[in-house]
């Protein structure tokens, strides 16, 4: 190895030492002096390149990574969300229309209370009447003055008219109808509630709001209608 080659090696890879280089440095005082100078230079170079690091850089990186750990919403998830939104909007619309239709029908039935009486031929309704009667007595909420069975669109439904002092309460029982939740409604200016239960909807209308609230809270359970 000659001096030129030695100096090239030293300047390119100062830390590398092999047997050839070591031999040359041992034999050549000028190159050995260069090594000493270069060691000093390497210290200066290292210090100059050692830019200070911001104190919070590690935390910033960890925080940024933790934020990105939440996976972006995939197209599949997006499609599922849009689907769910569409379904819920559809159900909401359907719920609204069912609610309106039922309230309208109940309002008509209230006006038609003087129509021909029909006996409760369906055993389910007969049982329901007995339970309702029991509840009214136990809760001191009046008594049933009339009960009817009606057929709407080929499906039976029961109606009960109750007196409590001067108040009139109307209870409608509609099987095979579905509502997602209870709704406050009005018919002929009378406040009412539509209460869903397993297998149907019960409609209650009463001018006294406190009584309506009590009835809505207790009657379905007393009539063994599961919500």
């Amino acid at each position: 190895m000659n001096c030129l080659e030695c100096r090239r090696r030293l300047l390119a890879t100062p830390q590398a030492r092999d047997a050839q280089l070591a031999t040359h440095l041992h034999d050549c005082p000028a190159c050995a002096r260069l090594v000493q100078q270069q060691n000093q230079f390497e210290k200066q170079l290292g210090a100059a390149l050692c830019v200070p690091v911001p104190d919070n850089l590690h935390d910033r990186v960890r925080l940024a990574a933790s934020m990105r750990r939440r996976r972006p919403i995939s197209w599949l998830a997006m499609a599922a969300m849009v689907g769910a939104l569409t379904v819920s909007l559809g159900l909401g619309g359907w719920e609204y229309s069912s609610r309106q239709q039922l309230t309208q029908q109940f309002a008509q039935h209230m006006q038609a209370t003087s129509a021909a009486q029909h006996r409760l031929t369906t055993p389910q309704f007969a049982r329901l009447r007995a339970r309702l009667d029991g509840y009214l007595q136990s809760a001191d909420m009046g008594h049933i003055v009339s009960s009817r069975q009606r057929s709407v669109d080929g499906r039976p439904r029961a109606e009960f008219e109750i007196t409590h002092g001067d108040e009139r309460v109307y209870v409608f029982m509609v099987p095979d109808t579905w509502l997602a939740m209870s709704h406050d409604v009005q018919a002929h200016g009378m406040p009412g509630k539509l209460i869903p239960f397993e297998g149907g909807v019960i409609g209650v209308f009463c001018p006294d709001r406190d009584m309506l609230r009590r009835f809505a809270a207790d009657a379905p359970r007393s009539m063994r209608l599961r919500g």
Partner: peptide, 17 residues
């Protein structure tokens, strides 16, 4: 965490230059 601890500083210095 180990990677961040070991290499962030040097990566930053290199990125600076």
């Amino acid at each position: 965490d180990a990677l961040v601890g070991a290499l962030t500083d040097d990566l930053f210095r290199y990125a600076c230059w």
